[in-house]
Nucleic acid binder design. Sequence first.
DNA 1: GATTTGTATTATGTATGACATAATAAAGGT
DNA 2: ACCTTTATTATGTCATACATAATACAAATC
Lengths: 236, 236
Amino acid sequence: MMDTLLTKKDFTIVDTSSLVDKVEASLVQLLQERKLKVGDAIPKEIELGETLGVSRTVIREALSRLRMMGLIETKKKKGAVITSPDLFGIMGKSMNPHILSQETLKEIFEIRLVLEIGMADLLFRRITLEDIEELKAIVSNEPPATQYHLFNIEHEIAFHGKLYEITGNETMKKFQKMLLPVFDYVHNSGLLKKQPLLKTFLSHKGLVDILENGSPEAFRNGMRDHLENHFARLFE
Amino acid sequence: MMDTLLTKKDFTIVDTSSLVDKVEASLVQLLQERKLKVGDAIPKEIELGETLGVSRTVIREALSRLRMMGLIETKKKKGAVITSPDLFGIMGKSMNPHILSQETLKEIFEIRLVLEIGMADLLFRRITLEDIEELKAIVSNEPPATQYHLFNIEHEIAFHGKLYEITGNETMKKFQKMLLPVFDYVHNSGLLKKQPLLKTFLSHKGLVDILENGSPEAFRNGMRDHLENHFARLFE
DNA sequence: GATTTGTATTATGTATGACATAATAAAGGT
DNA sequence: ACCTTTATTATGTCATACATAATACAAATC
């Protein structure tokens, strides 16, 4: 037998994607290129099937995906119309800590830290007196910080969640909400090194003080300090 | 006719979701609750149809959605196995600037700023000498900053994209890549107020200097300054 | 006997036809 | 004009059949 030493490069890669995949891509492209606005209707399933030369089954599966992504909404008799999708609503379904790779989980955890440090300017721009009062109420209910506290998740979420709310950025808030189960998981699983030193750094109360009297710059540094334990765990 | 003054609260909300929606939710829940690991197989379509009491058509549409989300992969004869999803790959398809609401676009733009300011610690932790050299090469090719530059998008992407790369956070990098068309759109469309003052703030070169000799804190402040024009446009 | 080749099996992929259901339009009655 | 009924239309669901690809196992070749 001749050893022809053929390599992958010698072949033209065959397209292994299914018809549904192609139709889906075709439809998404349709939405992207034609400047279709929200509310515009798209052709009926049967018409699509005829123009694309596939059965209604395939069309329906592809449309089902678009529907799940929130790109379209369908009503009987009326057909399908384009809608403004909820970016993170979809992603929430696949945000399953048990399935995501450890590397991805770690990265998501990092992103949280990045967001909370970087959000300072949004906070100072949009915070109200009521917000500050609410934050004060939250920290006042806080259990005293003990040296070996496995910190109170409830309070963590209440405080940091409120910060996301103050930014006024709904997209970011949804993002945070979606990530909550991940944080929970990362904390509990031994994914990160055990809490290394657990020195108590700048407290929630300290952060509120900065929000009341300080500057974005001061808040960034304060938050960085507040999150030091997390950073230390990430960086081994 | 009696005006009974009935309100929504008086009715039990009818479930308007389709069978496919329910099956999809049921399957997602299955993946979440059972601690199914990557690689585990799920029942065959026909079995699922029998246990859930629906036709194979419905099962297939639901599975098609999971497949699109990257939660499962299916192969003929073998069936479906659980996979680790690409979180942002899916979202990219619905990231269509023409369809997203103006408010969402603005918020996404904000998130970019937040990320780039907050990423300082990751940068300093992971940057290498080669990275610095590469950044220097990028800025050296930069056209001189003119007062009225409608800044060079190419260079913006090259420089800031490299920063995301340096973070070593693949998830964040994917996020950035996904957002590129949005930035392009936001810049071009009149969504944000016209460039207000266009003073030249801290340059790319200045940021590289900080990365080489400075601290995370200095970088955060530097990046904040660098992005001042964007902030100004966001905050009217 | 080990490797290859053919063949059967099995589960997904696609197509088609049928009917149910809901939303809309049209027609009809008062 | 207003309300009701009827017809129409497009999606939602089901059932069935066949195509296709992956796998396992038997058969053939050396």
